[in-house]
Amino acid sequence: STLARMILALDKSTSGTIRFCDETITGSSEAELKPVRRDMQVVFQDPYGSFDPRQKVEKLVAEPLHVLAKKPANAERRELVAHALHEVGLGPRDMDKYPHEFSGGQRQRLSIARAIITRPKLVVADEPVSALDVSIRAQILDLFAELNQKLGIAYLFITHDLTVARAITDEVLVMHEGRIVERGKTGAVLDNPQSDAAKALVKAAPDLHQAIARRLQEQG
């Protein structure tokens, strides 16, 4: 999460260089970062704490539009918000509601709508499904995959859940004490980990196949 905040230029790095689309982020001024931020958005972990409860959905989802070089007029803004809501499985009528009127999964859909409204090149997703029920997690992961195919958005997923990593990622980077200790194709890393940190992660993850087999045995 610390690295993600530095990539998003929310926190300053103490060393090293971060580059995004051939632009150096580290050490850049706010004015220099503005065009970079048009191509970068974030979905936070907590769908309950991501929104100002006093604001309606229209204003919340439209928030990133202020980084655009040409800010849309009111009518266009409502149209953009309605389209973003449709893309995440919600409707135009939801624009006039408040966050408390939605379930946790729906609020995370609102977070995703807010993230994609500017058509960014990268969305940083910080444990985006960890606060959701298992059944809802699958729906949100399917939505991420659908939007990736439809819009061509790249994702940087932060997760401790290897099931999520397998479901949504093409490549994995394993971090330990602030350093990347292993990287590669998701299947290769998780099926044959080389570093001690990756081995520990894989060992600690529940084996769903074994759990199902045990359950079937118990049922006779």
Score class of each variant (00 low, 15 high):
residue 164 V to H: 04
residue 131 A to L: 03
residue 156 L to E: 02
residue 158 I to L: 10
residue 161 D to K: 01
residue 139 Q to N: 12
residue 113 A to T: 10
residue 144 F to N: 05
residue 144 F to K: 02
residue 136 I to C: 06
residue 119 R to S: 14
residue 158 I to G: 10
residue 139 Q to T: 12
residue 114 R to S: 09
residue 103 S to L: 12
residue 150 K to T: 15
residue 104 G to R: 06
residue 114 R to P: 08
residue 144 F to A: 05
residue 142 D to R: 11
residue 113 A to I: 11
residue 155 Y to T: 05
residue 137 R to P: 00
residue 158 I to V: 14
residue 125 A to C: 15
residue 157 F to D: 05
residue 116 I to Q: 02
residue 151 L to H: 14
residue 162 L to P: 00
residue 134 V to I: 15
residue 147 L to P: 09
residue 134 V to A: 15
residue 160 H to Y: 10
residue 134 V to L: 14
residue 163 T to K: 12
residue 163 T to F: 00
residue 106 Q to T: 11
residue 164 V to E: 07
residue 144 F to H: 01
residue 115 A to E: 09
residue 106 Q to Y: 12
residue 114 R to F: 12
residue 154 A to D: 12
residue 148 N to H: 15
residue 154 A to K: 05
residue 164 V to D: 05
residue 140 I to E: 09
residue 126 D to T: 04
residue 118 T to R: 04
residue 103 S to F: 11
residue 146 E to M: 14
residue 159 T to H: 02
residue 117 I to L: 10
residue 122 L to M: 11
residue 108 Q to D: 10
residue 153 I to P: 00
residue 118 T to G: 00
residue 119 R to E: 13
residue 113 A to F: 10
residue 153 I to W: 04
residue 152 G to H: 13
residue 124 V to S: 05
residue 164 V to K: 03
residue 121 K to N: 13
residue 156 L to I: 13
residue 108 Q to M: 06
residue 136 I to W: 03
residue 140 I to N: 06
residue 125 A to K: 00
residue 118 T to M: 05
residue 141 L to D: 01
residue 107 R to S: 10
residue 131 A to H: 04
residue 158 I to S: 09
residue 146 E to T: 15
residue 156 L to V: 13
residue 124 V to Y: 03
residue 153 I to V: 14
residue 132 L to V: 04
residue 133 D to P: 04
residue 162 L to N: 04
residue 148 N to D: 10
residue 149 Q to A: 15
residue 142 D to V: 00
residue 127 E to Y: 01
residue 143 L to N: 12
residue 117 I to N: 08
residue 113 A to V: 09
residue 151 L to S: 08
